[in-house]
Simulated scan of single mutants.
Amino acid sequence: MARAATTTDAFNAVAEPRRRQILDLLAQGEMPVNDLVEVLGLAQPQVSKHLRVLREVDLVRVRDEGRQRMYRLNAEPLKPIHDWLRRYEQMWNERFDLLEQVLDELKEDDDGSDD
């Protein structure tokens, strides 16, 4: 099965680790492309390419401020990812709760054997 283009939805766009790094940085606040280049240690064309993909799925918004282009996170397209992951979060929480019960039982057994 062919993989969907990275510009079709947020799931595909965030599959790339560098784009997730960009989103993490923009979650801290609006940044110009030059700051992103400096922090990421990538060439400006590489960062711009990632920003273009993120803009095409509406995860990033851009505005001109003088001679700079300012980028900011638009988290709304991440909601379907969050909703999808929530099911797995519930499953893991249930498993951790069961593990905690087992550990508590083992601790009680161990504490009781000291008598």
Score class of each variant (00 low, 15 high):
Met1Arg: 12
Met1Lys: 11
Arg3Thr: 04
Ala4Arg: 14
Thr6Lys: 02
Ala10Leu: 09
Phe11Asp: 03
Asn12Gln: 09
Val14Leu: 08
Val14Gly: 01
Val14Pro: 00
Ala15His: 11
Ala15Asp: 11
Ala15Gly: 08
Glu16His: 09
Glu16Phe: 08
Arg18Asn: 05
Arg19Cys: 05
Arg19Glu: 07
Arg20Gln: 15
Arg20Trp: 13
Gln21Asp: 12
Gln21Pro: 08
Ile22Asn: 02
Ile22Gln: 02
Leu23Gly: 00
Asp24Ser: 12
Leu25Trp: 00
Gln28Asn: 05
Gly29Pro: 13
Gly29Asn: 01
Gly29Cys: 07
Met31Tyr: 01
Pro32Trp: 10
Pro32Glu: 12
Val33Cys: 00
Asn34Gln: 10
Asp35Asn: 13
Asp35Thr: 10
Leu36Lys: 04
Glu38Lys: 11
Val39Cys: 02
Val39Pro: 01
Gly41Met: 06
Leu42Ala: 04
Ala43Ser: 11
Gln44Glu: 13
Gln44Arg: 15
Gln44Lys: 15
Pro45Gln: 05
Val47Ile: 08
Val47Gly: 01
Val47Arg: 01
His50Trp: 05
Leu51Gln: 09
Leu51Pro: 05
Leu51Phe: 07
Arg52Lys: 12
Arg52Gly: 02
Arg52Asn: 13
Val53Gly: 00
Leu54Cys: 09
Leu54Ala: 08
Arg55Asn: 10
Val57Asn: 01
Val57Asp: 00
Leu59Lys: 00
Leu59Cys: 08
Val60Phe: 11
Val60Ala: 09
Arg61Ala: 14
Arg61Lys: 15
Asp64Glu: 15
Glu65Tyr: 11
Glu65Met: 12
Gly66Arg: 05
Arg67Val: 09
Gln68Val: 11
Arg69Val: 07
Arg69Asn: 13
Arg69Leu: 09
Met70Cys: 08
Met70His: 06
Leu73Arg: 09
Leu73Gly: 04
Asn74Tyr: 08
Asn74Ala: 15
Ala75Glu: 06
Glu76Ser: 11
Lys79Trp: 05
Pro80Asn: 06
Ile81Gln: 09
Ile81Phe: 10
His82Gly: 12
Asp83Asn: 14
Arg87Ala: 05
Tyr88Pro: 00
Glu89Gly: 05
Glu89Cys: 11
Gln90Leu: 07
Gln90Pro: 02
Asn93Phe: 07
Arg95Asn: 03
Phe96Ala: 13
Asp97Pro: 04
Asp97Arg: 09
Leu98Asp: 07
Leu98Arg: 12
Leu98Thr: 12
Leu98His: 12
Glu100Thr: 10
Val102Leu: 15
Val102Ile: 14
Glu105Gly: 15
Glu105Gln: 13
Lys107Met: 09
Asp109Gln: 07
Asp110Asn: 00
Gly112Leu: 13
Ser113Ile: 05
Asp114Val: 10
Asp115Thr: 06
